[in-house]
Design a protein around this nucleic acid. Structure first.
Length: 271
DNA sequence: ACTGGCTCCTGAGGGC
DNA sequence: TGCCCTCAGGAGCCAG
């Protein structure tokens, strides 16, 4: 369930449960993920003490004394801290046993996610080195977006989801941000004016921030911090609402495929 | 250098 | 009930 807000919610949820803990054992039931879990994974992680739980783009970075555990949730990945005795279900692929009787459990039906260990700077890892700016930082704004869109003919929605341009925006929040900015998702990126790029960059920040706040609220209600945030926490204005009335003008929301992904928009107020 | 299309994988839901 | 199709919140890889 992962776009940036969901990953951030997971990060915030597991951080207090992991800080200072040590991984005492690792069980890999099925390591065939997007990148297969390597033979060196278990010995590398075992014995490591957790010093930080950070996030870069949609990657979780669990910083340990001698390296970093990098986790990506893919489409369907879930990370939870549960009692060590919890019996595994079908898609509970990896357990990382902690020194307090709990374990960090990775589940992922579709197995598009990944776990890897790196003992050097995780930000320099090939998977992360080419990532664009964090959307909520000052490194991302209208000017940056406008520069990135220069001469690009791709649909603006596809550009928004390109992690080399800006990270963290997935299929749901791309539709939501474009709705908020009143920009049609199919517009070739290069046709957006500076003002429109400014509006869109602000809409991205606003959309993601609202979702993080909502996720955090949801999580606080979860006593076990099990992290079942999800998209129910926030009211989506257009995503998944084909045929329903636009919240602004009541025109029927349209659904269309853009770059193999379902996109939702109001044909009347988005241009 | 870009662009669009395909691919990995399992599960859910709709139509017949 | 079963079968077949389509779709799903990601992103790397490939040919043109």
């Amino acid at each position: 369930m992962p776009e940036l807000p969901e990953v951030e919610t997971v990060r915030a949820g597991i951080e207090p449960l992991l800080l200072g803990r040590t991984f005492v054992a690792v069980t890999v039931r099925n390591g065939r993920l997007r990148q297969p879990v390597t033979a060196g994974f278990t010995p590398a992680v075992t014995g490591q003490t957790i010093l930080a739980v950070a996030r870069r783009a949609k990657y979780l970075l669990i910083g340990c004394r001698q390296g970093t555990l990098v986790v990506h949730l893919g489409m369907s990945g879930v990370l939870r801290v549960v009692p060590a005795a919890t019996p595994p279900l079908r898609h509970d692929h990896i357990d990382l046993l902690l020194d307090d009787g709990q374990m960090l459990r990775y589940s992922d039906p579709r197995r598009f996610g990944l776990l890897l260990w790196t003992d050097s700077d995780p930000l320099q890892h090939p998977l992360l080195a080419g990532l664009g700016p964090e959307p909520l930082s000052t490194l991302f704004d209208g000017a940056v977006l406008h520069a990135a869109a220069h001469r690009r003919r791709v649909a603006i929605k596809a550009l928004l989801m390109d992690q080399r341009i800006v990270v963290g925006v997935g299929n749901i929040y791309a539709s939501e941000a474009l709705f908020l900015a009143r920009i049609a998702p199919e517009r070739p990126a290069a046709t957006l004016s500076q003002a429109q790029c400014r509006r869109l960059a602000e809409a991205v920040k606003k959309t993601l921030t609202a979702a993080i706040v909502a996720g955090g609220t949801t999580l606080r209600d979860f006593h076990n911090a099990a992290g079942e945030p999800g998209y129910f926490a926030i009211e989506l204005k257009v995503y998944g609402r084909a045929g329903e009335g636009c919240p602004r003008c009541r025109t029927a929301i349209e659904q269309r495929r853009i770059g193999q992904r379902s996109s939702y928009f109001c044909p009347h107020c988005q241009h």
